[in-house]
Design a protein around this nucleic acid. Structure first.
Lengths: 256, 256
DNA sequence: CGAAATCGTGCAACAACGTGCAAACAATTT
DNA sequence: AAATTGTTTGCACGTTGTTGCACGATTTCG
């Protein structure tokens, strides 16, 4: 898959290890040694180095992702492995050089981390943590949508943000999903969120919804107007076939 | 493959190196030397040059695109205990219910973390990590300044960001400091940064500069127009008394 | 408890580094 | 046209960073 390039710089190797760590949550020393064609000693040195910088947690046989203590971490850890898996699938829909709207939300943060490297992507987001996740990657452009940040949502919404979003045209749109309904589309918790999501969807070519299993049933707590026009839906592999069929009947491409 | 043109100007070569760097995310000194038909010494000089301009990250064997957590985290950890101390002092200047402009930069990230709790503050920032640091605190409002994010700086700058900033009036302003001079004020690395800092300073009541010791001497690498109008300066306690006196003579309140 | 895997450290070989210096070259002045 | 100034280049030198291996300590697992 990843044919080892001519030469791999030592520091670059550490960086690649870090990226793999961010993607998979763990790395195995022996695998890395084989992949980078260096001795395990060098990998151990790298891992020790990264750990000493607080960038990963060293464990016997490899290293684990260093999870920080953040206010949003509750939802983050919850179903995190599933979200990472869904994010990887969704990231596969992204093409070279595209412009992406990435809404706030823990699933979309996972998506941001899973985005392919070296693809010259432009990420437009209203969420600080999404911006942080892709900031500094080679070839990436990051555009921050300004406005008042809603702490519950973890991103900016409101009229200013909507107006900013309307100035941009993107190829793909990843709206955060609160709940999803085959016929009526995407539901949100409040009016402002709805307006924002509608704005980024209208400003994009195609819309991709990533839905963890709990999002697939519309509950009574979502009062506001639905957003439709979903082109792609990414769900876990064990989703009920009947549910998938209903989305497909509604013209949605379902990926799992 | 890349038929080398008759002559390659040194300056042009650096430009080509930068392009390759942007495309591949890395460059290897030996490869470049072979490709441009010059000695590795010259390539090393180019790379050193580019790195000193902050255009790439020099590593053993070549260079990497200014990237990722590494450079930011490096600065983060570097002098972190000093920065925290300075940030605490600066946070003491903040009053109940005030509106603050907080610029991007590792020192200001430390400031954001050090801001007093339960003070109903409004933090206006162009930096995702500053926003993350205060997001979700009770009583805090966070306003994100939108625009294109500069990875080197870690925050949005540019005309859109400036326009957004001009719509806001704040009590205090914490511009990121690149270098500081008693008579000529605050220096930045490039024009866009200068414009942005001027905008937030003009939109604020008072300006507070937090300067780690290395910032107190203007070096030759800062070419751009200075920003003045600093009201408060926060420095470490072991700062040279003569330097402090010069700032006080210029009408700056010095805290340490 | 014992075997196997993994770890950290010291070491020698090697690659890459920065610096000083002189030659080559271009642009400008005399 | 000749001289001068400044830049760029390659080379030599001593220094630093990186690597794989050997060896003994530590951890994991049956």
């Amino acid at each position: 898959m990843n044919a080892t390039p001519e030469t791999t710089l030592p520091r670059e190797r550490q960086q690649l290890i870090l990226e793999r760590l961010g993607r998979d949550g763990k790395v195995v020393a022996a695998d890395l040694a084989h992949e980078f064609r260096v001795s395990e000693d060098s990998i151990r040195r790298d891992l020790r180095d990264l750990a000493s910088q607080g960038l990963c947690r060293r464990v016997y046989g490899g290293a684990l992702l260093m999870q920080h203590v953040a206010p949003l971490d509750e939802r983050h850890r919850e179903r995190s492995e599933l979200k990472r898996a869904l994010a990887r699938v969704a990231a596969g829909l992204v093409g070279e050089g595209q412009i992406l709207f990435v809404d706030a939300g823990s699933t979309n943060t996972a998506l941001a981390k899973a985005l392919p490297e070296n693809r010259a992507l432009t990420v437009v987001t209203n969420a600080p943590d999404v911006a942080m996740a892709v900031l500094g990657r080679p070839g990436f452009e990051v555009i921050l949508l300004g406005g008042h940040v809603d702490a519950r949502i973890g991103g900016a919404i409101g009229s200013r943000t909507v107006r900013h979003a309307q100035d941009i045209r993107a190829d793909l749109c990843f709206p955060g999903v609160c709940a999803l309904d085959p016929e009526r589309g995407l539901w949100t918790y409040d009016e402002e969120e709805t307006v924002f999501k509608q704005a980024i969807i209208e400003a994009s070519g195609e819309t991709v919804a990533i839905a963890t299993p709990d999002k697939l049933v519309a509950s009574a707590t979502h009062h506001t107007a639905p957003v439709t026009a979903i082109a792609h839906l990414v769900v876990s592999a064990d989703t009920d076939a009947a549910v998938v069929a209903r989305y497909r009947a509604a013209g949605v491409a379902v990926h799992m």
